[in-house]
Each structure stands twice: as structure tokens, then as C-alpha cells.
Design a protein around this nucleic acid. Structure first.
Lengths: 239, 239
DNA sequence: GTATTCAATGTTGCATACACGTTTCTTAAC
DNA sequence: GTTAAGAAACGTGTATGCAACATTGAATAC
């Protein structure tokens, strides 16, 4: 086993544990590990050239973040993102985003500079021929994250980030159709403009519709895909 | 070291790991471990008669749940529940609870039976001389959890449960004044009644006010207490 | 007395060993 | 051929050992 890389630890934040976490998370989020597959600590450890200990810690973290669920007899398996669950997460997303946008408190200042920057970034994207699919999902997440962050509630923004991360695997289906990307950019710009113009309730309405649209598109696309993914019989695959 | 209790493991869900988790969580939530105190794995392990491994897993879980934060040089310390952070969590709570209550979808059925049960349980409490302080916090949490669960979004209810758990340590201050308990019971009943009578927007208004009231009371009480807790100089205490 | 070096101690992160339960495969009986 | 029993391989949960830092305190130089 390779022990040469054990030069700087303890103070180091990119420990074997967090490396394993990142790697595993990527594998799961990218869909490389089939849904329902059982994860075996030893094999993962070999694959990543670490011992079982950091792998266990990574598994624990991913479980806490709802990317894995406990296998009935110990161990973990990749969580099954049912349509129903995704619907519920979209619902949470709406709750958090709309609440962040509204923020009716009188003595609260929105991060105007951040919003102006956000607007510029998305104006630069106009047309949207540059980005596609999976890449655009991240851009989209970024928009919603920054919009929420401008509301000055870091904890809420953080919660939202986590929810979006859980939705991410199915969100790629939202932008399969090129028309959706263009529409998204347009809607995003309209929303920022409205917020900047202090037309909050109008912005909220647009944002609500925007999220609902996305949800509808995703749900229809996902229903079929999920069935296929599950029917492949890879549930019993082991990693 | 006691190894006699290692009779049934693997299938067993109450492993040493989860035992350590529960114990540590209780210690932290009860305020037995001072805010900012550094947690030392070895000592905790001795205290709980297990090895460092389950303790590490417990620490990891509590960190994921925001009860602990990473010490600058490795290790963990009890998180500092600043007034600002509590305010943000209360804000998230409002967002989730109000969203759950509103649920304007046309084809959505609320769990009426659950609500009727909830109403009965709280009618039985009328007067409220029975419960006090810390005990009542749990009852209160239970009410809000069940109210949210009746909205038929388990994921949202779960998120809310976690947020409430993070607020819990400071919420005990809400019910120091006996009058607050009576008022809470009254408001809870009014809210359930309104929901059952399908006066949703009225219920939402009441719930919003209810949460805001609680927040105000808690904030004022907590501001002082937190200062005291922090000034004791127990930050450097080690567990 | 103050500063500096260096040893001693403490603490974490990781690897590994082991115990116990589970699953699977083999073998024998019918 | 099917079934039952036993053995072997497997996988997880836990304990423990060790290396790499960090920290503290003592000894020495000035």
C-alpha cells in the first residue's frame, strides 16, 4: 500500500478522508455507481488507495447528506431518487427560495452589489449556446444560490445549497431541450431585474413560476429515466 | 475495557457508535459541555467505555448536524449559537412551516386524522400546569412537527425537525415565563382549528405571528444568557 | 531576566487486526 | 435432482497501534 503520500497530515484539510468523500460523492452524483448498488468498504478503499477508515468516514458523511441510505443488514447503498422524493425536494426549494426573496422585514438590506454582479454574469451568457446540459445545471444552481445569498441569511442559503445538490442528478434533464436553456436565462434575468427594481412580489411570482416550470419538465423526463435505471437490475451490483 | 457487551452486533442497530452519538448529543444539547469546549476523543471514549472509533463517528455525525464545528487544528468544539445564527434558523423555520401550512396545490390532501389527533392531544394539555420549561420545549417541537407532517411532505418535515433541534438549546428560554406556556397552548389550538376549518390563510397568519412571538421572546432572553455562557471562560475547557 | 532550542507529552488521522454475524459454496444424505 | 448441514469466504463494527504534527515546558545561552 502506498504510504509515501503521508507527508503532511493533521493540519492539512485535504485529508484522505475528505479526498475519499469528494471522490465518492462525485461517483454517486455522476451516476457512475448505479442506484441501489451496495457499497463495500474494502473495495472502495482499494479503489482509492486508502484504508477502510477514511472510506467509512466518507460513507458516514454521504449518508448524513442523504446521498446514501443504510442497507438493511449494515453498510450503505446509493439512494433511490424517486419522483415523489424529488417533488418534495422541489417543494422545499420553493419554500426556501421564495422566503429568501420576499424577506419583508423592514430593517433588512439586500446585497445589491451581489445582485448587480449576478445580473452582469447572466447577461454575458445571453444566447446560451456556450453551455449545455450538465454544465448548465451548475450555472443554474449558482444563480439560485447567489440569489438566495443576497437575502442575507447564510444558513438558509446553505440549506438551499444542500437541497439543490440532492436534486442535481435529475436536474440535468431540465436542460436537455436547448429551448429550456434560453428560457431559463431569460427568466433569470427578469427575476433579477424585478428584485433590483424592488418589485419584490412580482419577482416572487416569476420565481415561483420558474421553479414550477423546471419541476414539471424534470418530473416528466425523470419518470421514465428512473424506471429504466432501476429496471436494469443493477440494484444488486456491488461497489 | 468492557468487552462483555459485545454480544449481538452487525444486525444490531444500537451499536457502540450510535450509543456514543446519542450520549454525546445529549451532553451537548443539555449544555453539559460548555460552548466552545474542545472535545478530546480519548477522554470521551473513556467516559463512554468504548474505543475512539465509535466516538469519532459520533463526532462526525454531530458535525454534519451542525452541533459541532471543526477546531482550527483538527478536532471539534461545541458550536457557538450566536443570536444572529438563531435568528437565521428561526427564519428558515418560518419559511418551512408556513410553506407546509399553505400547500395551495389543488390535488393535495392534508392528513385530517393526524390533525384531529393533534388537537385532542393539545386540548388535554389545557391549562398547562403539568409541563414546564425544558419538557415543554419537546412538546412544542412535537406540535410543530406533527403540524408540518400533516402537509404530506416528509422531506420537509424532516428538514424542519433538524432545524428545530438546532434551535432547541435556546428555546427553553421561551417557556421560562408560565404565561408563555398558556399562550402557546391557546395559539396552537387556534391554529389547528383554523386548518381543520380550511381557513388556511388565517391559520398561516396566526402561525407566522406565533413563531415571531416566540422568536422575540427567545432573542431577548438569549442575548444575555449567551454572553454569560461565553464569558465564563470555559471556551478552553476540554472534554 | 529574556530568548532560543530541544525534548517530552498530547492529539489527531490513518492503517490494521480481530470478533462476530451473514452469505455462499461444498458435500453428503435421501 | 433436491435438500440439509457444515465449512469457508465475506463484510461490518470495534479496538488498537503508529506516524505526523502541535504544544508545552525545561534547559541553555546571552
Amino acid at each position: 500500500m502506498d504510504t509515501s503520500s503521508r507527508t503532511d497530515l493533521y493540519t492539512d484539510s485535504n485529508t484522505a478522508s475528505s479526498t475519499a468523500y469528494q471522490a465518492l460523492k462525485t461517483l454517486v452524483l455522476m451516476g457512475d455507481v448505479p442506484i441501489g448498488a451496495r457499497l463495500r468498504e474494502e473495495r472502495l478503499a482499494e479503489r482509492m488507495n486508502v484504508s477502510r477508515t477514511p472510506v467509512r468516514e466518507a460513507l458516514l458523511r454521504l449518508h448524513a447528506e442523504h446521498f446514501l441510505e443504510r442497507h438493511s443488514e449494515g453498510g450503505y447503498r446509493v439512494i433511490n431518487p424517486s419522483v415523489q422524493k424529488m417533488r418534495e425536494l422541489y417543494d422545499i426549494r420553493r419554500a426556501l427560495e421564495l422566503h429568501a426573496l420576499r424577506r419583508s422585514d423592514p430593517h433588512f438590506v439586500r446585497d445589491r452589489d451581489g445582485l448587480l454582479e449576478l445580473r452582469e454574469d447572466w447577461r454575458a451568457l445571453d444566447g446560451g449556446e456556450s453551455a449545455i446540459d450538465a454544465e448548465f445545471v451548475l450555472l443554474d444552481e449558482d444563480f439560485h444560490r447567489r440569489l438566495a445569498e443576497s437575502a442575507g441569511n447564510p444558513q438558509l442559503a446553505e440549506q438551499l445549497r444542500k437541497v439543490n445538490e440532492r436534486i442535481r442528478p435529475v436536474r440535468s434533464h431540465d436542460f436537455m431541450n436547448p429551448g429550456r436553456i434560453a428560457a431559463t436565462i431569460e427568466q433569470h434575468l427578469a427575476i433579477v431585474e424585478a428584485v433590483l427594481a424592488r418589485k419584490t412580489s412580482q419577482a416572487a411570482t416569476m420565481l415561483d413560476r420558474h421553479i414550477c416550470e423546471s419541476q414539471t419538465v424534470v418530473e416528466q423526463a425523470v419518470a421514465n429515466v428512473l424506471e429504466r435505471m432501476l429496471s436494469v437490475g443493477e440494484r444488486d451490483a456491488s461497489w
